[in-house]
């Protein structure tokens, strides 16, 4: 384990990569920031007084009003931050681990709307949430025991 991997040996490099709790939490954070960015984009689009865009001229007017919205700039700032965090995470773990684990917003959004907006969660939705959690656990475990497991 202490022996440094020879350069160009990609197998030795990928074998070292495994999911830690810290990386896991950062993946969840990225996913939440992504949701927040979407929210801000939507907010900035709604704040514009040109909801109907059917001509190019109206499109430019729309952009002109949207560009002064603080929500747009917050959203763009979030997009850049997400890119930095995501790239850092990808330097540590497999793509086929990072993407499924970052599916957390499919759980958090219904749960948050159930808690704060008192929306009902149907049985089908609960079973979906359970399946996603099970899936994320399976993918995570498959990354921790990278070699030899199944």
């Amino acid at each position: 384990m202490d022996i440094p991997a020879p350069e160009g040996d990609s197998k030795a490099m990928t074998a070292k990569k495994s999911l830690t709790l810290k990386i896991f939490l950062f993946l969840v954070l990225t996913d939440m920031l992504e949701t927040l960015a979407q929210f801000c984009f939507k907010k900035s689009a709604i704040s514009s007084s040109f909801p109907e865009i059917d001509t190019l001229a109206k499109g430019f007017l729309f952009l002109k009003t949207v560009i002064v919205s603080p929500f747009l700039w917050l959203a763009l700032f979030l997009v850049v931050s997400i890119f930095v965090i995501w790239s850092t995470l990808l330097s540590k773990i497999d793509l086929s681990v990072a993407v499924p684990v970052a599916s957390f917003s499919y759980i958090t959004v219904p749960l948050v709307s159930a808690i704060f907006l008192h929306e009902q969660i149907s049985l089908l939705r609960w079973s979906g949430i359970a399946l996603i959690i099970a899936g994320v656990i399976l993918v995570s475990v498959s990354s921790v025991h990278n070699e030899g497991a199944l």
């Binding site: 599916s103 499919y106 079973s127 993918v139």
Partner: peptide
């Protein structure tokens, strides 16, 4: 195991969205 996990995530998303 990872394929199984991915399959669970995909089914789970479809359930959450349709639920």
């Amino acid at each position: 195991r990872r394929w199984l996990g991915i399959a669970c995530v995909v089914c789970g998303i479809v359930f959450v969205v349709l639920g």
